[in-house]
């Protein structure tokens, strides 16, 4: 079942002089089992949106339907809030700043223990999660603070994956990593998606939108500006949003405009383009 967002609004510091409307009556759906990117300039409301999705903040008005959970302005009505957070989990920006335990395995198991798992079970599941993110056994007993930036991030992601959420939200998962490190994380995300998880990525990187996403949502000043496929987004007018059209896409568009019969909706990377050109030759 898709995630349904109905007339969602959020106002920070309501009824104070510093009142800010972060989300402005937005409605859209996030397809199940797909990778959806949420893009928009800083302060467009992306962070607020993802935090309402797992009940970290209550919407001012409107509602969100995720499976059996309905998030409304009255979070107290939602008794299973902890269950919701397990079902929909967020990996925050720079998640390495959430690590604190003395060993890697304990840190990953921490979430499960909050859900009442026994120590041995939690550790066992932590090992599974760590192997999913490609962290070697030799790291399990080490302090998370000894690891490199990319490794820390993978451990932090394991700390969320271990909860086995059905919906995984990642806020800027590649921020601060080098291209190689980013690639590792993005491949992990793809793998999680293949296992059936619905993925939501908040990002500024339009290459992630083009290469990795099935669906994209654009927020602009708290309002919904676009919801659809990446190629429809880039083919349209994006000049008023903080969006750089990827070079690959503008090149494909250029070819199409000059009468080369490429199908821009099927181009996700340079290999797709090459394959199409080969077919045309």
């Amino acid at each position: 079942m898709a995630i349904k967002i109905n007339h969602l609004s959020y106002v920070y510091l309501q009824k104070t002089p510093n009142e800010v409307q972060a989300l402005h009556d937005i409605s859209f759906e996030i397809p199940e089992g797909k990778i959806t990117s949420i893009v928009g300039h800083t302060g467009s409301g992306k962070s607020t949106l993802i935090q309402t999705l797992n009940g970290l903040i209550a919407p001012t008005s409107g509602s969100i339907e995720i499976s059996d959970f309905i998030v409304t302005s009255n979070l107290k009505k939602l008794k299973k809030i902890k269950e919701l957070r397990k079902h929909v989990s967020i990996v925050f920006q720079f998640p390495e700043y959430q690590l604190f335990e003395e060993t890697v395995e304990k840190d990953v198991a921490f979430g499960l223990r909050n859900y009442g798992y026994k120590d041995e079970d939690a550790i066992k599941k932590a090992h599974e999660a760590l192997s999913k993110v490609g962290i070697d056994k030799s790291f399990y007993k080490r302090s998370p603070f000894e690891l490199s930036g990319g490794e820390k991030r993978r451990v932090a992601i394991a700390g969320i994956i271990v909860l086995e959420p059905d919906v995984l939200i990642l806020d800027e998962p590649t921020a601060g990593l080098d291209p190689q490190g980013s690639e590792v994380i993005l491949n992990l995300i793809k793998e999680f998606n293949k296992q059936g998880k619905t993925i939501i990525i908040v990002t500024h990187d339009m290459n992630i939108v083009l290469n990795r996403s099935d669906h994209v949502v654009v927020l602009n000043e708290g309002k919904l500006a676009f919801s659809g496929t990446p190629s429809d987004l880039f083919a349209g007018d994006v000049s008023s949003y903080s969006i750089d059209i990827p070079a690959l896409f503008s090149f494909a568009l250029l070819l199409k405009e000059h009468g080369v019969g490429v199908d821009i909706s099927k181009i996700k990377n340079v290999d797709d383009l090459a394959a199409q050109l080969k077919g045309l030759k």
């Binding site: 979430g111 909050n114 859900y115 909860l163």
Partner: peptide, 16 residues
Amino acid sequence: DETQRIMKAQSSRGVD
């Protein structure tokens, strides 16, 4: 701000 961000991150891991 940082405190709030970490609190939210830990809440996401089931901390109450």
